[in-house]
Amino acid sequence: MALVFRQRSILPGFGISMGITLFYLALIVLIPLSAVFLKTASLSWHEFWSLATEPRALASYRLSFGASLVSALLNLVFGVLVAWVLVRYSFPGKRVLDSLVDLPFALPTSVAGISLTALYSRNGWLGRPLEAIGIEAAYSRLGIVIALTFVGLPFVVRTVQPVLEEMDREMEEAAASLGAGRRQIFTRVILPTILPAVLTGFAMALSRAVGEYGSVIFISGNMPMRTEITPLLIVTKLEQYNYAGAMAIAVVMLVTSFLMLLVINMLQRWCSKRSGG
């Protein structure tokens, strides 16, 4: 097989493995995804725009992005803290806790949804004390933020952890011997080193939160205009056989996720350049 774009190698199997890869990728991912754009092309630009920007859709974008942003920021702060504690300190139960950080990746979203709702509803372990001080956690926007924080929890921890582990402690020692205080060392030495990883984890958590469905719908109450996230609005429109409306909003979501994937790729390239250089 003489493919022009490939460098010569003595290893066999390029043709068949690449063939399987491209065929399966096209069949499962690329063709179905392009079908959305193909179907949407049957709408005129005006129709598409009015469907994608109807008041209920706009309210859902505001809620989905707002709540995702808040939860990703929470995960940024606590993720760095958890990564720091797991790498630098030792305490009993640390290894178990370390592997449990990945729980939100492994736990099905509907399980997370009903367990968070049970925790934060009025009779729940946490809902009751919160209600006593006048905070309504379940069936509110706060509930959405809680669910999205759960879902995005592992990202910042897992991007920052390896960078902290590989960090050269000599830099900190040098800074200390030159008279820098602990706070100065953190802001001038540690923070700049982990910043690309922190931002990558933040962007991943944000991207995951914007599209999240299962863990949110149980706890959010799902009131149109108030606590209705964008993925739920798509499902509602589908159940009403409003395919055009569902499609228009789905295209908005797809374009945002492509943009975020682009940003995440750029951040990751920045990360590997940092650690390589």
């Binding site: 995804l33 959305v36 979203t109 991207s207 914007v210 599209g211 999240e212 469905y213 299962g214 993925p231 739920l232 798509i234 499902v235 589908l238 569902a246 499609m247 789905a250 979501m253 797809l254 996720s257 492509f258 975020m260 994937l261 995440i264």
Partner: peptide
């Protein structure tokens, strides 16, 4: 990076 709901749709 695609929302699960969009994947189904």
């Amino acid at each position: 990076s695609v929302s699960p709901v969009v994947s189904g749709l």
